[in-house]
Amino acid sequence: MDVAGDPQSKAFGLAAEFDSASQLFHAAEKIRDAGYKKFDVFSPFPIHGMDDAMGLKRSLLGKLIFFGGLTGFLTAVGLTFIPSSIIYPLIVMGKPTNLYTVPAFFPIIFELTILFSAFTAVFGMLIMNGLPRLHHPMFNWERFKKVSDDKFFCVIEARDPKFAERDVKDFLQSLGGQNITRVHGD
């Protein structure tokens, strides 16, 4: 079996290469059914239905963004009402700030709600993905460079409770995985 990375360091897991999206998809279903939890599949583009194939739940990001948007909404409400009615009351076209003039604050409230939601979407996504993280054990494997081109990979991590090197290797082979490699590194 090939070895990638410094063999002295901790083993990250056993990785295999696949040729097509459908092979990877069916491999993921079988890995899920075999009861592995700490595994991932890598592809040049998102594969439709892969979350179910891996047994992953829907991303929580959507719920997080709701709270981001709520923060933006409350910030904007404070930003418009506090100066206009308390700190620096303005009379515009003969109208002081009161309930009837609230619609004039809507554009700013709307914009800030969108702005905070968008920040939450992008930074929430990065944090949930553990990015930025410029180094990762998988990058020790030379063939893995093809993941952003036209190859598909899967890895079963050594920290999975079911992980046993011989079994995993045979299992990956039975799924049609090629170039099965032990990846090392922290």
Partner: peptide, 17 residues
């Protein structure tokens, strides 16, 4: 690229975002 790996555990949050 911020260390993007293309793992599906990343793609699922990415697609949602």
């Amino acid at each position: 690229a911020l260390g993007w790996r293309g793992g599906n555990r990343q793609w699922r949050h990415y697609e949602m975002a």
